[in-house]
Simulated assay, not measured.
Amino acid sequence: MTTLLLHKPYGVLSQFTREENSRWASLQDFVDTPDVYAAGRLDADSEGLLVLTSNGRLQQQLTDPRFGHWRTYWVQVEGTPQPHQLQQLRDGITVQGHRTRPAKAAWLKAEAIPTIGDRVPPIRYRATIPTHWLEISLTEGRNRQVRRMTAAVGLPTLRLVRHTIDLMDGGTPLTLTGLEPGASRAVSKEEEARFVQLLKGSNPKNQADRRRG
């Protein structure tokens, strides 16, 4: 099994095939390891942590919401978050006719604002409307879900960075730490062993039982 962690930059599709006449780059511009594919997706206009693996079962394990792997995002939004808006995100809201699962949502105050570089190209700023950072965690990942959720509560997303994937095995979550945009690394022996252990218990019911225990 070959598994990599990649810091996907803005403007890159989560696939290795470049679409004809597309303005977006693809993963082949950053990763030359053969036979690996993205376990889950980030939109081209989103950034952050992407797991690439040659193991189809691991792809399913990390993306199927029944396994309950929390994925955490730094989200720069337009407007000032209000308590009721954050609670709406936590409780779940209806997006495109589907109710989102309960989420975690917090307003990152000044001391907790992520220390990441400016996006290229930069986000749009409007002088009369402030921007703030939220931290949002989900166990599901429908198409443009975070953006649709924040828009639904009146806080349009300007920038979206996935920085953590929790394997829910009691170990340290996978993070962007040490990875510059466009950079990737092979998982460590310890991380690979954790993935193998996850696959041994890849029945969603078994995992749910262990979490309850």
Rank of each mutant, 00 (worst) to 15 (best):
D166R: 05
D166T: 04
D166C: 04
D166W: 02
L167P: 02
L167H: 02
L167Q: 05
M168K: 10
D169P: 07
D169S: 01
G170T: 00
G171S: 12
G171N: 07
T172D: 13
T172S: 11
P173W: 08
P173G: 02
P173M: 09
P173S: 09
L174N: 08
L174W: 13
T175W: 13
T175I: 04
T175P: 03
L176D: 00
L176S: 10
L176Y: 03
L176F: 10
T177R: 14
T177S: 12
T177F: 10
T177D: 15
G178H: 11
G178D: 08
G178E: 12
G178A: 11
G178L: 11
G178F: 14
G178V: 10
L179R: 08
L179E: 07
E180I: 10
E180N: 15
P181Q: 08
G182L: 11
G182R: 12
A183Q: 15
S184I: 10
S184Y: 11
S184V: 00
S184N: 14
R185G: 07
R185L: 12
R185Q: 02
R185I: 04
R185S: 06
A186P: 08
A186L: 13
A186I: 10
V187I: 15
S188I: 04
K189W: 09
K189T: 15
K189Q: 15
E190N: 07
E191K: 11
E191I: 07
E191S: 07
E191P: 09
E191D: 09
E192W: 07
E192F: 08
E192Q: 13
A193R: 05
A193N: 06
R194Q: 08
R194S: 05
F195G: 00
F195N: 00
V196H: 06
V196S: 06
Q197N: 11
Q197H: 12
Q197V: 00
L198Y: 03
L198A: 01
L199S: 02
L199M: 02
K200A: 08
K200C: 04
G201W: 14
G201P: 04
S202W: 13
S202R: 08
N203T: 04
N203A: 03
N203V: 07
P204I: 00
P204R: 00
P204E: 05
K205C: 03
K205E: 12
K205D: 10
K205S: 14
N206R: 15
Q207A: 03
Q207D: 04
